Amino acid sequence: MTAPAPAAGGRTLAHPAPEDIRLEDVLHALSDPLRLGIVRDLAGGRGELACSDFDVPVTKSTTTHHFRVLREAGVIRQVYRGTAKMNGLRRDDLDALFPGLLDSLLAAAARQEERRAHD
């Protein structure tokens, strides 16, 4: 685990170093539909998003849990900017470690959503 990056107000969050990101942790993190939806939103190209930018149908504590799972798996990076916790996809790290995995999973999720919309 890398040393946490310093944050505003002294708050820091630990993230795994790229060499510590494991495929099974990434797949576990992305196996939950809510977490996969968060990653799909982040992959949409709008840059970093605050936790409050996500429309998730669960309590704040459950949302916090889902973001922590994604962060600890190495899928997202979270940093404090003022009072907001900002989230960014670690696409470069994931693409370097597992070429094509993220794009394949996102494409499969989009196809699944399309199928469900037609049912």
Results as ranks from 00 to 15, higher is better:
Ala5Leu: 15
Ala5Glu: 14
Pro6Leu: 09
Ala7Gln: 15
Ala8Glu: 15
Ala8Asp: 15
Gly9Leu: 04
Arg11Ala: 13
Thr12Leu: 08
Leu13Arg: 15
Leu13His: 07
Ala14Arg: 15
Ala14Asn: 13
His15Val: 07
Ala17Val: 02
Pro18Ser: 01
Pro18Trp: 02
Pro18Thr: 03
Pro18Phe: 01
Asp20Met: 14
Asp20Leu: 13
Arg22Asn: 13
Leu23Ile: 13
Glu24Trp: 11
Glu24Phe: 14
Glu24Ile: 14
Glu24Gly: 07
Asp25Arg: 10
Asp25Ala: 06
His28Val: 04
His28Cys: 04
His28Phe: 12
Ala29Ser: 05
Ala29Glu: 02
Leu30Pro: 06
Ser31Ile: 01
Ser31Lys: 03
Asp32Arg: 03
Pro33Lys: 07
Pro33Thr: 04
Leu34Cys: 00
Leu36Gly: 00
Gly37Met: 00
Ile38Lys: 04
Ile38Trp: 02
Val39Asp: 01
Val39Gln: 00
Arg40Asn: 11
Leu42Val: 00
Leu42Ser: 02
Leu42Ile: 00
Ala43Asn: 05
Gly45Leu: 04
Arg46Glu: 12
Arg46Gly: 10
Gly47His: 11
Gly47Asn: 10
Gly47Lys: 10
Leu49Phe: 02
Leu49Ala: 03
Leu49Val: 02
Ala50Met: 11
Ala50Lys: 13
Ala50Val: 10
Cys51Lys: 12
Cys51Asp: 08
Cys51His: 06
Ser52Ala: 12
Phe54Pro: 09
Asp55Trp: 06
Asp55Tyr: 04
Asp55Lys: 08
Val56Ile: 14
Thr59Ile: 06
Thr59Asn: 12
Lys60Val: 03
Ser61Val: 09
Ser61Glu: 10
Thr63Cys: 08
Thr63Ile: 07
Thr64Gln: 10
His65Ala: 06
His65Tyr: 13
His65Lys: 11
His65Asp: 05
His65Phe: 12
His66Cys: 05
Leu70Tyr: 09
Arg71Cys: 08
Ala73Pro: 10
Ala73Asp: 10
Gly74Phe: 07
Val75Met: 03
Val75Thr: 07
Val75Ile: 07
Val75Lys: 03
Val75Pro: 09
Gln78Cys: 07
Gln78Asp: 06
Val79Glu: 14
Tyr80Trp: 14
Tyr80Pro: 11
Tyr80Ser: 09
Tyr80Met: 09
Arg81Lys: 13
